[in-house]
Design a protein around this nucleic acid. Structure first.
Lengths: 471, 471
DNA sequence: ATATTTGTCACTGTACATTTC
DNA sequence: AGAAATGTACAGTGACAAATA
């Protein structure tokens, strides 16, 4: 019997030798990509080991390494030393999340921000642009924000415990924009950023686009585990870490202050750049006794703090404040210029006016009320609670058990008239067995609509849930 | 005499062997970077050939290749087969161009857009936000623009000869933002984009940030040479091409329609993605008999057309229209979501209102008048004209001859109270002997100030110019 | 507990194209 | 016109490290 009897232990993937062209590594990568995109290789499938495939194709195994690497960079597969190479969970589809024109669909997917408060904004907007100095907002000056706008932002952040000065903050076009600017400024293709196992899917996509690798780190009810982070840092060079300590998206976990210190210690030791997205700060500060301050304060010199006003004040006004350490100053400016040239002063001016008039605080309170009510409604349908979850989150993380794939579930629910997102979209790397749905509470036109949506959801889930699982 | 007698033909760069650590290629790259940034290796210096340095360090020459490649990706050096490897013109400094708060300086550097017309915009702005539907502008909907805004944009572009539909256009936050979105969407690190020898410096910086290589292609009075492009395409894989045919920045060259067709032919043959920045369209269409249409029309399926309103209407309202082929549709959307989530509807709404009320056309005419006057003033001081130059450009490209470096010249002129940019900033790769200054005509507070600035400039230049050079 | 499986990384070897002289 | 100089692209070798059985 020949040593390489592929007949007996068939490989999960056998590229057609005849279609191989030189350069081999590219050709192999192309064939693999096609087979994944066409669905011949399902997510989670184990690919043949490099040496085995090399044997089969009569090539050196590092040529296969190269081919696999190309696909890994494209997010199609992921590899673990010792275990093998697998087709990624979100290989064949884009997981980018965006608003849709949903005429016949109840929106429980995309997280908006209780747009019911926008009338207040509209009023202030009209006041703001009736000032005498409007035409000063219309030129190229002050690309990181006009001084008085920055001052207002600094005051706004003071109330959530972040202190900075004009030189180390910038106004940009929303949190996503801030993330794009930060990644471009401070990271290079091929570098690694640690994240929670589940993380914000647009961050995953952004990292993919910029060819930055995400390293998922396990966590518990208090947030990411410091030992796990330490372990990975010791293993491979990790350059940064992305966290949403005030309310993780999508899991709604709030990180304990103790955990913040532990993680900060590791970050300091390994010189990780912390990217903190504190989108929910205003709904967290003052909510729990444990909450003291953002992580930024623990390592202000090696961190970038991002505070968007989209969730707290108004989603359509594209404004986020960024605060960063002195060492990042120059690189950040450059990245801001090359992505935006400047942020619209108009949006920033309206937000500034909202803060100065105090209306912003009124809006926050109103949204807090709405969040309370929406969460109460949710609890009627899905009462289970887990430790560490944020009580006022704009979305909930619902554990489910089905035999369906994420894509199927989403499609099914859409046909019933509701849009939700499956946990697969939020996977930063490997596949998991757990399934969840992220349910947005802040995106329907009214709380009544939310109620309708949740009812449909509950009904659907009791139909597809397997075993003795109860909802 | 020994073969490797380094004593006799000293190498331009000898890294300290003792400081070499493993991995060698990284160590070498670091040492090289330090020596360049510290100024030990001046721009233009020829580095030792790969084989020679390898010999000296007792390594295989491909290890040097790798070290050089790292530095090349960082924009520190550039290499040409057959000729050697050289320190890049802008190795040690950032060439990002942005507005500055110039209290005591006359701005002839950054190109603004005759901000004198902003009063018209301010009026329309106030009308626009007094409409009933403002609060609809304040949510997450329509991330690529609200339909009526897109319609206005499409009409606007119709007048410069671009035809598209809602599905294949998007509204984003200005031309630079559009470029960032496009490069992230359609290119990967390591890929190559052809450009003019001199090109827009923020595009150079953006490409650097995204690790996309620029390939400078020679041109003549009619624009980039098709034969040259063809030659480079045949040599190495080039993935795209960036052009500003209506008025190249910084050279003010207008591409002839004949040249457009020739270049389009090459692009079609080699499947290049065309990125066309048509910032000056409104000042070009109708200006010359030769001008027919943007290049986009010649290859609509493999091109991205960018039309910013910053120069034509108002610089502070961050709005640019993008038009692209069907094949790019999905990737573009994803890139828009991951860089911006959405563009501010507010800015777009004001621009829309300006277009619908016809005020936008009034502003264009006014700016055209201002451009005419400013160029006339410039001609008083610097009368020389070159074929192919745009008569109404917002900036001019002034040939100079000095012994000073670009950085010195800029610093000198700043001390005399004017800010200008030296041609080195716009070099996409190699160094050249020619020196130019880019003189912005549209950025001073008034034409009187422009006059003062040009006077100072002329005086200064007659002092430093060498030989029989006249101004 | 240790051998095996499996992926990663740095460096080497070879063929080749273009530029220069 | 042809040889030498020079950079590029791809494939291969071997040491190593993590995960698994």
């Amino acid at each position: 019997m020949p040593v390489n009897s592929f007949e007996h232990y068939p490989m999960s993937w056998k590229p057609d030798k005849a279609r191989l062209k030189r350069p081999y590594y590219q050709s192999i990568a192309e064939l693999l990509e096609q087979d994944i995109r066409n669905g011949f290789l399902a997510p989670g499938t184990k690919l043949p080991p490099q040496r085995e495939l090399a044997d089969f194709l009569d090539l050196n195994f590092t040529t296969i390494t190269r081919a696999y690497k190309i696909c890994e960079r494209r997010g199609l597969i992921y590899a673990t030393t010792g275990s093998g190479t697998f087709v990624a969970a979100n290989a064949a589809r884009s997981i980018t999340i965006s608003a849709e024109n949903t005429n016949n669909t109840l929106e429980l997917g995309f997280v908006a921000s209780f747009e019911q408060t926008n009338d207040i904004v509209a009023d202030v907007l009209q006041q703001a642009v009736n000032k005498r100095y409007v035409s000063q907002l219309l030129n190229y000056n002050d690309p990181t924000g006009i001084p008085h706008q920055k001052t207002a932002g600094l005051n706004w952040m003071k109330s959530i415990g972040v202190h900075a000065d004009q030189e180390h903050m910038a106004i940009v076009s929303g949190a996503q924009n801030a993330l794009a600017i930060t990644l471009k400024a401070l990271f290079e293709p091929g570098q690694r950023i640690a994240t929670d196992v589940y993380t914000y899917s647009n961050f995953i996509e952004l990292a993919k686009l910029l060819h930055i690798q995400l390293v998922p780190i396990a966590g518990d009810a208090c947030g990411m585990l410091a030992e796990e982070l330490e372990k990975h840092c010791a293993q491979t060079k990790i350059h940064g870490i992305f966290l949403m300590p005030s309310c993780s998206n999508p899991t709604t976990m709030m990180m304990s202050d103790r955990r913040k210190s532990e993680l900060a210690e590791v970050m300091r030791q390994y010189q990780l750049i912390l990217i903190e997205d504190d989108i929910h700060a205003f709904f967290t500060a003052g909510m729990t006794d444990d909450y003291k301050q953002p992580m930024f304060n623990l390592l202000p010199e090696q961190a970038v703090y991002i505070c968007s006003t989209a969730k707290t004040i108004c989603s359509g006004l594209r404004v986020a404040y960024m605060v960063y350490g002195e060492v990042f100053h120059e690189k950040m400016l450059q990245s801001i210029f090359t992505t935006n040239v400047k942020t619209s002063s108009l949006d920033a001016e309206v937000i500034t006016e909202l803060i100065l008039t105090g209306e912003a605080y009124r809006i926050v309170n109103k949204k807090r009320q709405l969040a309370k009510m929406a969460n109460a409604i949710y609890a009627n349908y899905f009462p289970e609670k887990k430790a560490g979850e944020h009580p006022l989150s704009f979305y909930r993380w619902l554990p489910i058990q089905t035999h369906l794939t994420g894509a199927q579930l989403e499609a099914d629910l859409k046909s019933y008239g509701i849009r939700v997102f499956h946990s697969d979209r939020f996977l930063s790397g490997l596949t998991t067995i757990d399934q969840h749905l992220r349910i947005a509470l802040s995106s329907t036109n009214s709380l009544d609509e939310l109620q309708v949506g949740l009812k449909i959801l509950k009904q659907y889930l009791s139909g597809v849930s397997k075993g003795g699982f109860f909802l």
